[in-house]
């Protein structure tokens, strides 16, 4: 009996590894994001607005959000392009007759409930906030870039001036003031939405009910809270 209790209490620690993301118990919102691929027109305004709002360095390689164009050719190969993260827009580089299917995929932090990036931080400088946003404490970060390596979605970078890890904050300074994140405020087609997963009336919960969504790399069990609608299997 005592042995069973001990064993179950030991296994309890690993529950987080076994089950999908559940909202933490307690009051308040738990933010998640939805991106509808069928609505995205690849204007790249989200990536541009993000850089302006969050003072992300303008040169390429530093993105909190960016847009990729996937082109699946008739010969079965897949071409992925993201010229300057889509900030300057897209030109179709493949002739129409060779294309089987093509679409835009906006990428950003998945704000995982069991984020690999926060688990590896040696100093407690990155964390999931109580409302489900993965944030960086830039006064505490030592710039070791373990988190940059750990993120399976490539959503982090080392800020060239601050020398600390930097990433999407879901515009925490905006959502806390009741405003939409910059990328979602500017999205002309409403392809990007965010909402409270705890609130059954929120835009995001309605979106999840109305659509068949998927997350990226579900086999990694990151508890990602970025739900794509109409996303092809080629994207990982």
């Amino acid at each position: 009996m005592a042995g069973a209790v001990t064993l179950s209490s030991m296994l309890d620690t690993f529950n987080v590894l076994l089950y999908a993301a559940d909202p933490p118990e307690g009051e308040g919102p738990w933010w998640g994001v939805g991106i509808d691929i069928s609505k995205c027109i690849g204007c790249g305004l989200c990536a541009r607005a993000c850089k302006v709002e969050n003072q992300v360095p303008q040169e390429p390689f530093y993105y909190r959000t960016w847009v990729e164009q996937y082109t699946i050719l008739k010969d079965g190969t897949t071409k992925v392009e993201s010229p300057n993260g889509g900030i300057d827009g897209f030109d179709q580089s493949v002739e129409e007759k060779d294309i089987f299917k093509t679409f835009f995929v906006p990428k950003m932090c998945n704000h995982c409930a069991k984020s690999p990036c926060t688990q590896v931080c040696p100093v407690g400088a990155t964390f999931e906030s109580p409302d489900g946003v993965a944030l960086v404490d830039d006064k505490y970060c030592i710039g070791c870039s373990y988190c940059v390596q750990a993120c399976p979605y490539g959503c982090r970078y080392i800020h060239p001036e601050k020398k600390t890890a930097d990433k999407c904050t879901l515009c925490y300074h905006r959502i806390k003031r009741g405003l939409d994140p910059a990328c979602m405020e500017i999205c002309p087609t409403g392809s990007r939405i965010y909402g409270d997963l705890n609130d059954k009336d929120s835009d995001l919960v309605r979106y999840l009910k109305e659509n068949v969504t998927r997350i990226l790399k579900p086999h990694l069990n990151t508890g990602a809270k970025l739900f794509y609608n109409a996303l092809s299997q080629e994207v990982s």
């Binding site: 964390f127 830039d138 925490y172 905006r174």
Partner: peptide, 26 residues
């Protein structure tokens, strides 16, 4: 404030939330 909510500085939430706005809203 370290450990107030978890293994991180609780004030980091305030730091993140108090950054300046750049974009207005509709």
């Amino acid at each position: 404030t370290f450990g107030q909510y978890g293994h991180y500085r609780g004030d980091a939430l305030i730091d993140n939330a108090s950054r300046n706005l750049v974009h207005a809203s509709k």
